[in-house]
């Protein structure tokens, strides 16, 4: 199964979740952190995250600030007020979706409940 296709739709909730737990993060930091938390199971590429980050910025959910680090510009992303409330909504949505997925992929799980 193509893992990238599975991740695609969950990318913006993942980013919002990480930003809600950290004051500000830069793109590379986000990919590193995701890799670390998931024990290397999910690796985001820069081709995937920047379009989403820019979309979130366009929608007013995140804001950026620039700072010089190691001789180059680094863009830090952080949640706006609007972003904070949207983040918790999206995370709740994702959670609900994952619960539903669990039921679908494991039919026995569902049946046992009904038979008891």
């Amino acid at each position: 199964m193509n893992k990238n296709n599975l991740i695609k739709g969950t990318l913006s909730p993942i980013i919002l979740k990480l930003l809600s737990e950290n004051k500000r993060m830069y793109g590379y930091e986000i990919t590193r952190k995701v890799k670390e938390i998931t024990d290397g199971k999910i690796e985001l590429t820069f081709g995937a995250i920047y379009p989403v980050l820019h979309k979130l910025e366009k929608d007013g959910l995140v804001k950026t600030e620039s700072a010089v680090a190691n001789n180059r510009n680094r863009i830090y992303y952080s949640l706006t007020e609007k972003g904070k409330s949207t983040a918790s909504e999206r995370i709740a949505e994702l959670k609900e979706f994952l619960e539903a997925m669990k039921i679908i992929i494991n039919p026995g799980y569902n049946l046992r409940y009904q038979s008891i």
């Binding site: 793109g27 590379y28 820069f46 920047y50 680090a69 180059r72 510009n73 680094r74």
Partner: peptide, 14 residues
């Protein structure tokens, strides 16, 4: 906008 800065910093970090 700031996509070039994003990409340069990201590639450098990697």
């Amino acid at each position: 906008s700031h996509l070039a800065d994003d990409l340069i910093d990201h590639i450098c970090c990697e």
